[in-house]
Computed example of a mutant assay.
Amino acid sequence: MNTDKNNKLTRIGVFYDGNYFLHVSNYYAYVHKRKARISVSGLHDYIRHKVAEVEGDSSGYRHCQIVDSHYFRGRLNAKDASEKSNSLYYDRLFDDVLMKEGITTHYLPVKTSQSGQKHEKGIDVWLALEAFELAYYKRFNVLVLVASDGDYTPLIRKLNTLGTRVMLMSWDFDYTDDYGNERVTRTSQDLLEVVTYPIAMHEEIDNRVARDSFAVNNLFLPQQKKVERKAKAIPSTHKSEVDSNNDSEGDIGEIMNIQNGYGFIKRPPNNLFFHYQSVNGIDFNDLSVGDKVTYNIQKNDKGDDVAVDVEPIE
Rank of each mutant, 00 (worst) to 15 (best):
R92W: 00
L88Y: 00
G116N: 05
K111I: 05
M99E: 08
R92M: 06
S85R: 14
T112I: 14
L134N: 13
E101Y: 04
D96R: 13
M99L: 06
D95N: 05
G102S: 02
V97Y: 00
A81P: 08
Y107R: 10
D124I: 08
S115H: 09
L98R: 07
T105P: 08
S87D: 05
V97L: 05
F132I: 09
G122K: 09
E133W: 03
V97P: 09
E120I: 04
V97W: 01
H119M: 13
K111C: 07
K100H: 06
R92T: 01
E120S: 08
W126T: 12
D96T: 04
A131R: 09
D91E: 07
M99I: 00
E83S: 12
A131W: 02
S87K: 13
L93S: 03
K121H: 03
L108R: 15
I103S: 00
I103W: 03
K100R: 12
W126R: 15
Q114F: 07
A128V: 07
H106Q: 11
P109G: 01
I103H: 04
H106I: 00
L108I: 09
D124A: 11
E133I: 11
D124V: 09
I123P: 13
V125S: 14
I123G: 11
T112N: 06
S115W: 03
K118I: 00
Y90E: 03
K111A: 11
S113H: 08
Y89D: 05
G116C: 06
G122Y: 02
H119E: 12
K84L: 09
L98E: 01
L134H: 09
Y107W: 00
M99R: 14
F94Y: 06
S82A: 12
I123H: 09
D124H: 08
I103N: 05
L88E: 06
D91N: 11
T104V: 08
F132R: 14
K121N: 11
M99N: 12
Y107P: 08
T112M: 14
L88W: 00
Y90Q: 08
Y89Q: 11
S87W: 07
L88M: 07
K111M: 12
G116M: 06
P109A: 01
D96N: 12
L98G: 01
E83W: 03
G116W: 02
L108G: 05
E133R: 15
I123E: 11
T105M: 15
P109F: 01
E133G: 13
V110N: 04
E130G: 06
K84R: 15
E130P: 10
Q114R: 13
S87N: 07
K84I: 08
K121G: 09
G116D: 03
D124G: 13
L98I: 00
